[in-house]
Design a protein around this nucleic acid. Structure first.
Length: 472
DNA sequence: CATCCACAGGAACTTGGGGGCA
DNA sequence: TGCCCCCAAGTTCCTGTGGATG
């Protein structure tokens, strides 16, 4: 188990986070959790111990106005606040379900439902913190958190859980074993720990979508196979209907208790932001309207508290860069635009190569037409672009999947339409600003060889028939 | 009202890569 | 070194779809 500090974006169990190993196995290196339970380290002082830091950074740092009171981690989603406004009911409900574990009894399995940023993970994190503080009888042997958004195959899930319980390096499960063997190793390692294990499977719906419910069946059977350890499953899902895709036996086991997390409204988001702002910023640096505007934008995004916090943090950073003494509503507007741009750039950057060319084909078609394009037209355009790179285009079936992928990323919108004898197809429109996405994709190393030349940010309309060699 | 078109999308299969093991 | 495993990405095959058309 790695002891590298967690990053806010990587919440998989391989890169552990605030939920990781609750109690180190004998002889094991200290778990990350123990680092997290320790008092927060004081932030490095500007121009501190690194005597080699250049005068350049000294000037940048000294020119910044200090809006923050302390650590800006308070505004990150990885931070577990001591108070969760408007989640008291859910907090209590989760605690009631899990409380029997403190007395050595097996809690019911539990499912938490709610859209992104409705506080599910934060509530579980806080319940976990409180339980570990109160567990004076050491009845809970582990509180394991796995994010199935990244750990989404049966093998990787069982391997991750097994390795969580591995006390020594030679007990760790490598990749390449037969699945049965991994499962047996996981059971053996778990059973050696003795006590109650609370296994949190975040984004459990992603696991079911990608790998079916077989591995959930195995996990739900654990209590009939283990001797000294008992396991309670806690699933977290953004999808209210995901249990419909489960086998009836698994559904009934997993659904013993369920708790719904409704989206926050704008006023509730304001309360959350005020709490965090008070901890994060110096007095008087927030102009009236800043919190309200962040909350209003996030309320439009399904009441996503993460979004609201990100906006507030980014607005503060914008103000710092402007060397402003106060954060204004205008900084929130800038932050919102910047956040949207960052999401687009990140999406474009992480796409598979063929997907990038496909997106470029859609962008070019959209730029030319300023209206929707059909799947067949997009495919033809994509195929000719890929051939200019000296490569074979993917099969239309694969491109159809990639179009769905672009849609699920929110980059395009694809509506199925029937054109009579013209057949059934998808009308594809852009769901992101063309002016920001086109330069981003044209700057990508994959697309650059076939991208139109640009002068001072302006693209030139040219005839592209000449092939360009590239490797995707 | 049957036929047609151009796909959508599910399912099974193939391929190739990364890794462990005897 | 060859065989086994898992996994991701892609291909092949197939059925289904729904509005225009004759």
């Amino acid at each position: 188990m790695s002891t590298v500090p967690p990053t806010p974006l990587d919440r998989s169990a391989e890169a552990p986070d605030r939920f990781e190993a609750s109690r180190s196995a004998p002889g094991a290196t200290p778990s990350v959790d123990e680092h997290l339970l320790a008092p927060p380290a004081s932030p490095p002082t500007p121009g501190g111990p690194d005597r080699t830091s250049s005068a350049f950074f000294d000037s940048v740092l000294s020119a910044r106005t200090d809006l923050f009171r302390g650590s800006r981690e308070v505004l990150r989603e990885s931070y577990v606040p001591s108070r969760l406004p408007h989640r008291e009911e859910q907090l209590r409900a989760v605690a009631e379900v899990l409380a029997p574990a403190l007395e050595g009894h097996l809690p019911s399995n539990l499912l938490l439902y709610g859209k992104i940023g409705t506080g599910k993970t934060a509530v579980v994190a806080q319940v976990r913190q409180e339980m570990m503080k109160r567990d004076d009888r050491h009845a809970i042997s582990a509180f394991v958190y796995v994010n199935c958004g990244t750990i989404d195959t049966p093998y990787s899930l069982l391997q991750t859980i097994a390795n969580h319980f591995a006390a020594r390096d030679d007990e760790r499960v490598p990749t390449g074993w037969a699945l049965d063997r991994v499962e047996a190793a996981m059971r053996r390692l778990m059973d050696a720990r003795k006590g109650t294990v609370i296994l949190v499977l975040d984004e459990i719906d992603r696991l079911v979508d990608r790998s079916g419910d077989g591995v959930l069946y195995s996990l739900s059977q654990l209590n009939t196979q283990l001797e000294a350890t008992r396991v309670a499953l806690l699933g977290i899902s953004n999808d209210l209907k995901f249990t419909n895709r489960l086998d009836a036996r698994i559904r009934s086991r997993l659904n013993e208790e369920k708790i719904l997390f409704p989206p926050y409204d704008a006023l509730q988001l304001q309360d959350i932001l005020r709490d965090r702002a008070q901890a994060a910023f110096r007095d008087g640096v927030l102009e009236p309207g800043v919190v309200e505007r962040c909350a209003a934008y996030a309320a439009l995004e399904n009441g996503d508290a993460r979004r609201a916090l990100a906006l507030l943090r980014l607005a503060a950073e914008m103000a710092e860069r402007d060397r402003a003494k106060r954060i204004t509503p205008d900084h929130v507007v800038k932050a919102k635009n910047r956040l949207e741009q960052d999401i687009i750039l990140e999406c474009c950057r992480t796409l598979p190569s063929h997907c990038k060319v496909l997106l470029y084909a859609i962008l070019l078609a959209y730029e030319k037409r300023r209206s929707s394009v059909l799947t067949g037209e997009v495919y033809d355009s994509y195929a000719s672009l890929v051939r200019r790179l000296g490569l074979q285009p993917l099969h239309p079936r694969s491109i159809s999947n990639h179009i769905s992928e672009l849609e699920s990323l929110g980059l395009v919108r694809a509506t199925i339409v029937s054109k009579g004898r013209g057949g059934r197809t998808r009308e594809i429109t852009l769901d992101v600003p063309l002016s920001e996405t086109l330069p981003a994709i044209e700057d990508d190393p994959v697309v650059r060889p076939i991208a139109r030349p640009r002068v001072r940010g302006q693209t030139l309309l040219t005839n592209f028939d000449s092939p360009v060699r590239s490797t995707l």
